[in-house]
Design a protein around this nucleic acid. Structure first.
Length: 729
DNA sequence: GGTTCACTGATTTTT
DNA sequence: TCAGTGAACC
């Protein structure tokens, strides 16, 4: 039986029913785009399209998981088993996860090991620093993350080999680094995030048979958050869509907030140029927010030029006004929010998980955490420095990775002398030198031994033996146990204890290490469970399964992936590491009913009944790049940062709220221990006064640093003259 | 080769 | 304010 499309509005339905050819869905915030995608997929299934011919791409793993769940539920129509059956083989994944699959399928052609590693940004930084040192460039002269972003931009836009010699020193340095960087990765049998897009793209471009294989397989493409695609992703889609052009993209140019990562709004703005004849659907009815919230959001985003004109509307009532709160300090701002959360939870019976505190930068989280803790409110901070950014955790992972693949030099060199085992810088430098001369990996030099290293021969041999001992065990079942043994034998715990300044710091480090080890166990257990379930399923569903696969046709893959899609993150340690790399901010592990704290970027796609958007100040939102202001204490915004994108960011924040929205700012903010005066955000002025309830927590009226100074001087004067004029006092 | 102490520099957003 | 790095010293 087919799904019921009568509950969709006419625009939504149009986007679902046009199954062939290019479709652009411009979906305003809260206009039901996930709903459209899910319905569209199930509608395709209803039309007899085999699930394995459909590829739905999202931006985050979480979005992919939710999308899949939604589709399965919709396809089930009340019968869970039917849902699972009807959607088996359907691919819902991120671009990067899709890339992993392609690269894995084609690893031989790419000269990569089957279990290639994935470098995260920390690993990238290490590699770049090493390359800089090799080039005898002081790595202090360059901001390595900035170099990385240049490299990334060049690689994902295919402009590695730029003609004109750049005169910018960063560009120049990047040119030197780029080929070495790519070669370095390859030599280590590793890829970075960009490779997961670039390598498939190159394969598709250079090897028509491969492209054809994937084109024949994925005949219907859907893309969520299309405004966030970068050049490589765009080209990948274009190639995959091929002449069939069955590509449906969904997005909102007003929510494009990742240009700093290479995303280009033009892809969505110019979709009909790239795909002439595309059906264009506008979803403008908002099902999320009450009227006043929407009106405020519209007012802010309306000031942006060059956008697809949209006007969100709602059938819901106006709701309460938007509150704008001026607090004297960031501390007071946080206290106000915490108190309000308590009050709202109590008086209005809104559960904590329906409330969120949003901010522009992670650093803003701290005062909120303190205030909430003080108020006894449960909360969770999403994003920021996670478990996996901690040094001791990275050490553990480096051990696992190095044992699994000793050619991963970033990991190997990270742990070769951690804890100190007498293989110091000198020894390593010698080994690297030898390796370069012989053109072999450092590991080979260490493993083979060399007369130049004789002074440390014994210690090196012990280290080599250690990794070898665990290599095989980490590849097999029981890898979580092996991992723990490795960590214990190495003595990471002691190492972690050593460097900690305080006892609690010690405990946290130990806890972090234990956290990873627990996760390992958890992952292995789940993988085994899944494998068992699948085995049962397969034996039960054998007959119908094979026939449906056969009718799917178009299966000519030269290196057919192991039939099941779930294999994406294969069981075993390599699978765990892959997943970790792709899905950094892992398991929010439903910690019960609590308030969410996160950045605006993290909040995209989410919604709460009650939202506090904090820090509406010049220099913060809109953000002004490094530091809040220039030397004179004046906010330096214009030009420094993409103001239009900052506006979109504010828009995203406002539109997260369903019922209640509070915008807060502080007149003064603590930074590096010093209080710095702040001026209200220009975005506040854009909201019509009739939508706003102002709450002043006791802020002196004029706010710019200069004005504050002038006022102080003036009041001093008037006080003095009053004293002088009045003989009674 | 290892350890300790002092200094510096950084704070935007992340798949 | 704090963490990470580098130089001096053991």
């Amino acid at each position: 039986m087919a799904i019921d499309l009568s509950l969709l509005n006419p625009q939504q339905r149009a986007a679902v029913l046009q199954t062939e050819g290019p479709v652009l869905v411009l979906a305003g915030a809260g206009s039901g785009k996930t709903r459209v995608i899910a319905h569209r997929v199930v509608h395709l299934l209803d039309q007899g399209v085999p699930p394995r011919a459909i590829l739905a791409v999202t931006f985050t793993n979480k979005a992919a998981a939710e999308m899949k769940e939604r589709i399965v539920k919709l396809a089930a129509g009340g019968d869970a088993r039917a849902g699972a059956r009807r959607t088996r083989g359907l691919t819902v994944s991120t671009f990067h996860a899709f890339g992993v699959k392609v690269v894995r399928d084609q690893h031989e052609r790419l000269g990569l090991p089957k279990r290639f590693g994935i470098f995260d940004s920390g690993d990238q930084v290490s590699l770049l620093k090493r390359l800089l040192r090799d080039l005898k460039i002081e790595d202090k002269r360059f901001d390595v993350p900035r170099l990385l972003s240049i490299l990334s931009r060049r690689r994902t836009t295919g402009t590695e080999l730029q003609g004109p010699v750049p005169d910018d020193e960063y560009e120049l340095c990047a040119s030197e680094l780029l080929p070495r960087y790519a070669l370095g990765l390859r030599a280590m049998g590793a890829v970075d995030f960009d490779d997961l897009l670039i390598l498939p793209l190159q394969l598709f471009r250079d090897v028509p048979e491969i492209l054809q294989t994937y084109q024949n397989r994925f005949r219907y493409l859907l893309v969520d958050e299309y405004q966030d695609t970068n050049q490589a992703q765009f080209e990948l889609l274009q190639l995959l869509a091929g002449i069939r052009r069955n590509l449906c993209v969904v997005g909102d140019d007003d929510q494009s907030i990742y240009s700093w990562r290479g995303a280009e709004v033009k892809h969505i703005l110019e979709f009909d140029k790239t795909f002439p004849g595309a059906l264009e659907v506008f979803l403008e009815q908002n099902y999320r927010s009450s009227g006043n919230i929407l009106a405020a959001a519209n007012a802010i985003i309306g000031k942006n030029p060059a956008r697809k004109p949209k006007k969100l509307w709602t059938e819901r009532g106006n709701g309460p006004n938007v509150r704008v709160v001026a607090a004297p300090s960031d501390e007071a701002e946080a206290k106000f929010v915490a108190d309000e959360i308590v009050r709202i939870a109590y008086e209005e019976k809104i559960p904590l998980h329906e409330m969120a505190v949003l901010y522009r930068t992670n650093a803003q989280a701290r005062p909120f955490e303190e205030a909430l803790r003080l108020a006894g409110v449960r909360y969770r901070v999403v994003g920021g420095t996670s478990l996996f950014d901690r040094k001791e955790v990275r050490d553990v992972l480096a051990y696992l990775r190095a044992a699994l693949n000793p050619h991963d030099e970033v990991s190997l060199l990270r742990i070769v002398n951690v804890p100190a085992r007498g293989i110091g810088d000198q020894t390593i430098a010698k080994a690297q030198e030898l390796a370069r001369k012989k053109r072999v990996p450092v590991w080979d030099v260490l493993a083979a031994g060399a007369p130049e290293l004789s002074h440390a021969a014994e210690r090196i041999a012990v280290f080599v033996a250690l990794l070898r001992k665990y290599q095989a065990r980490l590849e097999q079942k029981g890898f979580s146990t092996a991992g723990r043994e490795l960590v214990e034998e190495v003595g990471i715990h002691e190492e972690a204890r050593r460097g900690a300044q305080s006892l609690p710091a010690q405990a946290r480090r130990i806890e972090a290490i234990e956290g990873v080890l627990r996760q390992l166990v958890e992952f292995e257990k789940r993988a085994e469970q899944k494998a068992a379930e699948r085995a049962v399923e397969r034996s039960v569903a054998q007959p119908s399964e094979s026939s449906s696969l056969a009718t799917a046709g178009a299966e000519a893959s030269p290196s057919a992936p192991e039939e099941e899609e779930d294999d994406m993150f294969a069981a075993g340690l390599p699978g765990y590491l892959t997943r970790l790399a792709l899905d950094s901010k892992d398991a929010d592990g439903d910690s019960g009913d609590c308030v969410t704290l996160m950045t605006l970027h993290g909040a995209k796609g989410l919604e709460w009944r009650c939202v506090f958007l904090s820090g509406l100040e010049e220099g913060l939102l809109p953000h002004s790049g490094r530091g809040f202001e220039d030397a004179n204490g004046e906010p330096a915004v214009d030009g420094a940062v993409n103001l239009e994108e900052e506006r979109r960011l504010a828009y995203v924040g406002l539109t997260r709220a369903r019922e209640r929205l509070t915008l807060t700012r502080a007149a003064e903010r603590l930074r590096r221990g010093k209080a710095i005066p702040r001026t209200p955000s220009r975005f506040l002025e854009d909201i019509p006064a009739n939508l706003v309830d102002l709450i002043d927590l006791g802020v002196p009226q004029p706010e710019s640093a200069k004005e504050v100074r002038e006022t102080k001087a003036k009041s001093f004067f008037s006080q003095m003259s009053a004293l002088l004029d009045d003989p009674k006092s």
